[in-house]
Design a protein around this nucleic acid. Structure first.
Length: 345
DNA sequence: TGGTATGATTACGC
DNA sequence: GCGTAATCATACCA
């Protein structure tokens, strides 16, 4: 019996801070307390810490499964200990009862014995809690370590990001709202969107030639949808109104599939960026592209030689902002060095 | 299996 | 806090 005396045996009735810590952690991790999807909150937290995404659902489920396992083991062990504690207590009580035939045993003595037994078992319980916490920590660290185990984004996500990038090549700095929107669309996190744009800008700048084809491809894509929109708009104009609302600099530049191919520009860029400049910018691109499309009926020739998207927006330093600020294009955000001030807080 | 692509991290500047 | 640049680590592909 004395061998069982481990640390924790010194604990008295007042709640032991260490035990409280363990309890809190187990509760927070969803190991103890009411079952709530096997600690999905903890999984989410870990996922957030790892920049996790919906793509991480595999890891999530893996994490959850392991956590559930831990939880189950913890509860069965806990139950076992409680049962053993009760059994042992009754066993000791029986012994004492038997002994009471031969010698007088005071209730105080019985109480003391029960107290000792309970303390022993609670120290064992504490050990159980401790090792459970350790298991959770290990699981968690393993889960977090896996953050470098990257997974490529889905094709669709990459497409969405590329489309945004190339259609905003003059200023590929999505605002916070745009990032959020893109993140939602791509089922990734905002920080992943930021990472993606960071990587993309750098890699594009470093090797524009390599990306030319890709740029053209997306430009052509834009053009196709834009052309459709233009055609629709033209048709609309012919049937509806003799005026030309889209020719000027009005904010109602009606190219829903070009300027805001993926989402509404207003919702993306917040406020100031949907007006004439975007319209003009997109319009010029559309004109070029329409020409190319007319020429080829496809994209082949027109794309190779003709740079639909030339690196003209990059300045000598490789920055984007100089190319955009002077006249034709003002940015939704401001470009490197001064980010997101338009959507500022 | 080696080269390339790509997402994430880090260091640094503003 | 965001951006760039360099780098790491892994996925992907011929």
């Amino acid at each position: 019996m004395r061998g069982l005396s481990i640390r924790g045996a010194q604990e008295e009735d007042p709640p032991d801070p260490q035990l409280m810590r363990l309890d809190n952690m187990l509760l927070a991790e969803g190991v103890s307390g009411p079952e709530k999807g096997g600690g999905s909150a903890a999984a989410a937290a870990a996922a957030a810490a790892s920049g996790g995404t919906a793509d991480n659902s595999i890891e999530h489920s893996d994490y959850r499964a392991k956590l559930t396992q831990i939880r189950q083991i913890y509860h069965t062990e806990l139950e076992k200990y409680e049962q053993a504690c009760n059994e042992f207590t009754t066993h000791v009580m029986n012994l004492l009862r038997e002994q009471s035939r031969t010698r007088p045993i005071s209730p105080k003595e019985i109480e003391r014995m029960v107290g000792i037994i309970h303390r022993k078992f609670s120290s064992i319980q504490m050990q159980l809690k401790q090792s459970t916490c350790e298991a959770v920590m290990i699981l968690r660290s393993r889960f977090l370590d896996a953050r470098r185990k990257r997974r490529n984004f889905s094709k669709q996500a990459t497409e969405i990001l590329n489309e945004y990038f190339y259609s905003h090549l003059s200023n590929p700095y999505p605002s916070e709202e745009a990032k959020e929107e893109l993140a939602k669309k791509c089922s990734i996190t905002v920080s992943q969107v930021s990472n993606w744009f960071g990587n993309k800008r750098i890699r594009y700048k470093k090797n524009i030639g390599k990306f030319q084809e890709e740029a053209n491809l997306y430009a052509a894509k834009t053009a196709v949808t834009a052309a459709h929109a233009v055609a629709a708009a033209v048709q609309n104009n012919q049937t509806n109104s003799p005026t030309t609302p889209n020719s000027g600099s009005s904010g109602s530049f009606n190219l829903p599939n070009s300027g805001d191919m993926y989402m509404n520009m207003q919702s993306l860029n917040g406020d100031s960026y949907q007006g004439s400049q975007v319209g003009a910018n997109v319009q010029s691109q559309v004109d070029t592209l329409r020409h190319v499309i007319n020429q080829t009926g496809g994209y082949n020739d027109g794309l190779g030689g003709n740079s639909l998207y030339s690196p003209h927006n990059l300045n000598a330093n490789g920055g984007w902002q100089d190319a955009t600020t002077p006249s034709s294009v003002t940015s939704p955000t401001e470009g490197p060095g001064s980010v997101h001030s338009d959507t500022s807080n």
